[in-house]
Each structure stands twice: as C-alpha cells, then as structure tokens.
C-alpha cells in the first residue's frame, strides 16, 4: 500500500473541502483498501468520512431515506426495509459475507469497482485502470464479463447486488459537492463504458453521496432477488435478477426488472417492462419479455452461456415474483 495523507472529516462540508487531486473518500473501505493493496488505487490522501452523521435510516416522502454511511448489514436488518423493501434486503444479503456487510457502507456499495481480473492485475493492460492501455479481457478470459452495453474499450461488469435492487426500486441518489447538492436518479448514476471506461459513475470530482432515497413501497409481496453464481455463497453473480411486480388479479400492473453481472451498470430494459404491463402473469408473457431483453445481448469469446442463463433467470425471477415466493436466502437451490 502506498503512503498517504489522512484527514478525518467532521462535516460534509469539511470532507468536500479536503478533496483534491488524488484524494479518495473512505467509509467502510472494504473495496478501496483491497484495491490499494493491489496498487490499483494509490490515493495521495484518504478523507475518512465515517464520523459524519450520515448513518440514519428515516421515513421520507412516503418512502425511506437511507444515510450513505448506514452499513449494508444495518440496511438489510432494518424492520422497515424488511417490511416495505424486502427486495433490497434480499439483494444485500445475497452479496459478500457478514463481516464485509458489517463494514461496507451504502454509498460505498454504489461506488464499488469492477471485479474484472485484468482491472485487478496491474501487470496487464486495462483501459479502466490505465486509460488507453487496451483491454485484455476482450479475447482473453472473459467468462464473467458483460453481455450488454459493452464497448470496444471495456467489457467489465458492475459487481454490486444491492445496486441491482436499487435500480429495480428506482431509488434516487442524493449527493453533495463543491457545486452544492443535487439528486441523481438511480438509472443515471452508473454509466456504460463507452470511450471512457475509467469513469464508473456520473458523480463529479469531490462529490460525496449523502443518502439513497427509496420511493413509496410497491413490491412488498411480489418480488425476488435471484442470484446465480459459481458457488452458493460469497461469490459475485454471473447473472442476477431483481424483479418487482404489482399485480391486479392475474394481470401485471407494473413490472420492474434489473439484471446484475451482465453489464457495466445495473441493466434495465424499459421496453420489456412496459411490454409486461397489462399482460397476464404467465410464463408465456415472461418468456416474451426475456426474449426481448436478451435480443440485444452480445457475447464475448467465453461468456455466451450468460445469454441463455439470463433468459432463464428472467423467466424464473418473474415467476418467483408473481407467485410471491422469492428466492430463499439460505437455501440457494433453484427449485
């Protein structure tokens, strides 16, 4: 790990003030410290924001406001989250380990870097780590990589489970920075790699996440977080599905669907969501939506299996949501 200057911020304004070139904010540190050990991240200054009063979970505008420093564990085990946003709870508990969830913050979860092998391996070219150096994953070992929204510069995936649920729940990210405060709709928070894969989000330099707002609860009954991975616990998703449905009898009134493990950001297809609305909640409807979504998938040399896996996971996830039988958190077998 490189040497760095350490600043402990007492207020959000102090934290923003302390920011400069080469500085990083640190909260849980579970991703940043790991990346520093690999020398993927070499910050000149760490600004410790853990003493800021941003760890509360409060009722807000008919929904819930989750402070950026609320740990993943605190959010997952909050009674209001369990009752009103069980999709979020299940997604959080599908990720990482208990130790990591106890340390990792809500804001930090949104800012996780990709787990692409080559991004971590400083001996290989990587456009995300070192812009312009090339992408080793394209044509390399890319079994875990993206099938949607890739570019010829980067095919990395976003690793979070929590964010997949937040995308389906249409959360809003509240940020504070040198230019003041602003709100970012969740769908616009993360970005696709395009020609600048080094930039994961639309957060401006020096901006700090202060809260994540959830709108009024819509999927307390009909939801699932279905995560498919190489081992049953403590592994990143190959494909995951966050699904929320509002039903009117057997008819779909509202559908929200986000996919994880398949793109540089939580992947949504609004056309497929709209197509489901007004349709019967049957396998046929769900298959049609899944077909529409995977129609724009583009495989790499080793990850073509993800297309069929995603198609089946979408159908399974929507069926679980419609039936009100979300994927179990402890029994991961797919029935």
């Amino acid at each position: 790990m490189n040497r760095f200057d350490y600043v402990r911020a007492g207020t959000v304004a102090e934290a923003v003030q302390a920011f400069g070139v080469g500085a990083r904010f640190i909260a849980g540190g579970t991703n940043l410290i790991d990346l520093m050990k690999y020398e993927v991240e070499k910050p000149g200054r760490l600004i410790d924001i853990t003493r800021l009063p941003l760890d509360r979970i409060e009722d807000h505008a008919g929904g819930l406001r989750i402070g950026a420093l609320a740990t993943n564990a605190k959010v997952a085990y909050d009674d209001r989250v369990a009752e009103r946003y069980p999709l979020l709870r299940n997604a959080i508990l599908a990720g990482a380990s208990a130790q990591l969830r106890n340390a990792a913050s809500t804001g930090g979860n949104l800012l996780q870097r990709t787990r692409c092998y080559y991004f971590y391996d400083v001996a290989t070219p990587c456009n995300k780590r070192e812009p312009g150096s090339g992408c080793t994953a394209i044509g390399g070992m890319n079994r875990i990589h993206a099938i949607f929204g890739t570019s010829d510069k980067c095919i990395a995936t976003h690793p979070s489970d929590m964010c997949i649920a937040l995308a389906a729940l249409e959360a809003t990210v509240q940020v504070s920075g040198p230019q003041g405060e602003r709100s970012i709709p969740f769908a616009e928070f993360h970005r696709l790699p395009g020609d600048t894969p080094e930039t994961d989000t639309n957060l401006a330099p020096g901006e700090i996440i202060v809260a994540v707002d959830l709108p009024e609860s819509r999927f307390p009954q009909h939801f699932t977080y279905l995560k498919l991975r190489d081992r049953l616990s403590y592994a990143f998703a190959l494909v995951s599905v966050a699904a929320g449905l509002e039903l009117d009898g057997d008819t779909v009134k509202t559908a929200r669907l986000a996919l994880g493990g398949v793109a540089h950001k939580p992947w949504r297809n609004r056309e497929a969501e709209a197509m489901l609305e007004g349709k019967p909640a049957t396998r046929e409807s769900f298959q049609a939506a899944a077909d529409l979504i995977v129609a724009e998938a583009k495989p790499q040399s080793e990850n073509g299996f993800k297309i069929d896996l995603a198609r089946r996971a979408i159908v399974r996830g929507l069926e679980q949501a419609a039936a009100g039988t979300p994927q179990s958190l402890s029994d991961k077998r797919i029935q």
Binding site: Y6, G29, T30, A73, L100, A103
Partner: peptide, 13 residues
C-alpha cells in the same frame, strides 16, 4: 461487538 475483517480495516479509522 461486530465482526469485521481486520485486514480491510485501517487502525486509524
């Protein structure tokens, strides 16, 4: 009282 990974924790924090 909460379990964490000491390897990913900076003592100063």
């Amino acid at each position: 009282g909460t379990r964490v990974n000491a390897c990913l924790t900076l003592a100063v924090m």
